[in-house]
Amino acid sequence: MTAIPSDPPVRLMAAPFTAFDRDGGLDLDRIADQVAGLRADGVHAAFVCGTTGEGASLAEAERMRVVQRWCIEAGPEFDVVVHVGHASLRVAIELARHAASTGATAVAAVAPYFHRPRTVDELVEACAEVAGAAGSLPFYFYHLPDMTGVRVAMAEFIALGRERIPNFAGVKFTHNDLAELGQCLQVAGDDLEIMAGRDEILLASLAVGADSAVGSTYNFAAPVYLDMADAFASGDLASARHLQQVTRGMIDLVQPFGGLPALKAIASMVGVDCGPCRLPLHDLDDAARAGLRQELERIGFLKTLEQSRTRRGAVNETAAQTV
């Protein structure tokens, strides 16, 4: 494996879990540990109250409390992008106004997902309302067609959004269409940011031209992805492919073991325990957790993560001593 560059070839933003206590209430005291863990793993920002953060399962007031605490704990050197998307455009606007008052770095929003925009023009119109409520904060559109059902051409959306939304900053592209991702990157140019949103195809996204990414598994596996990106940048494709294969194997285990609850279970094994998920999702029982750990060991994920954390931690410590 090659040396770690001082300027990483990809900027990773974690989509953090929302921590709950055993009764399903918010456990905001966990956020300080989440921030510390992400920083230690080389993550530069958090995408708060998104899909992984169960934002759609939180009441409006709860989302505001979570955002406020994240902004306090993150401080000025760790970016907090607040997801404000909602089925109700009015609620999304209120969440955007609140985010702007908390010291957030930026806001993002999925499309309204019950009564949906049908065209690029309608989607831009809806996003402009939310973006306008955020004042001067940058606005990102969260493209998540598999969940929202809104499937419009993103390259066209970016071109029109650039014209009509003054604080438009880019797109969180959570879709498997790499050809469309490439189109988005081309249209965006250097002035807009297109963030790859599928962890399992991050390597392919880098090959298309992405240099930033948002993901669920960066909560606990960022060092492996950063090693993968370093290997790709240095031309060591064999190592890069191997590391993507290991992380993809971990992600492939998630759905059979319960989806998001399985991700939270993995985080509790190797990072910060954020408690259970909210209904209708169910936490893993002891037998399932044991089976998941056994499978993670079998595919080599836990060993690979330990190696990447050790390697990057040792290099970072050496670099700090020479500053």
Rank of each mutant, 00 (worst) to 15 (best):
A287Q: 13
R11I: 01
R162Q: 14
F157M: 14
N176P: 15
A231R: 01
V35P: 02
S216P: 02
H282N: 14
D41W: 01
T105P: 04
E122F: 11
P117V: 09
G149S: 13
C184E: 06
F78I: 11
L206T: 00
D29N: 06
P166N: 13
V107D: 01
I31D: 02
I299P: 00
A40N: 12
L203M: 09
L263V: 07
M195H: 11
A45L: 09
P76C: 08
E125C: 01
V130T: 14
L206I: 07
A46Q: 05
A133F: 07
F157Q: 01
V150I: 11
E73I: 07
F232Y: 14
P256V: 10
S136Y: 09
D41M: 04
V152G: 06
A131H: 01
Q294C: 11
A108M: 02
F47V: 00
R97N: 04
S6Q: 11
E295R: 15
S234R: 07
R69I: 01
D190A: 15
Q186Y: 13
A231Q: 01
Q321C: 06
I251Y: 02
L263H: 12
L302K: 05
G135Y: 15
N219L: 01
I158E: 03
E94T: 13
D227P: 00
L296V: 04
E54K: 08
T52Q: 10
P117R: 11
G258Y: 08
E317H: 13
V150M: 06
L58A: 07
R164H: 07
L281S: 09
G271V: 00
P112D: 08
K172G: 07
S6Y: 07
A40Y: 03
T310M: 07
G170A: 10
R11Y: 04
R293S: 10
L202T: 04
V110K: 02
E180K: 05
R311H: 06
P166G: 07
A109K: 03
M64V: 13
M13W: 05
A126H: 10
T51W: 00
G182L: 01
L253T: 08
K264A: 11
G42D: 04
L279F: 14
T51L: 04
K172T: 08
G258T: 11
Y218S: 00
A61H: 15
E125D: 15
L123S: 05
V254N: 01
H83G: 09
L296P: 01
Q244F: 10
G258H: 12
L160A: 10
A238N: 12
S88K: 13
Q294M: 11
Y140L: 10
R151H: 14
G259I: 13
R162C: 05
C274G: 06
G53I: 04
V81H: 05
R116M: 14
G132Q: 10
F17Q: 03
G24V: 10
P276H: 09
L253I: 12
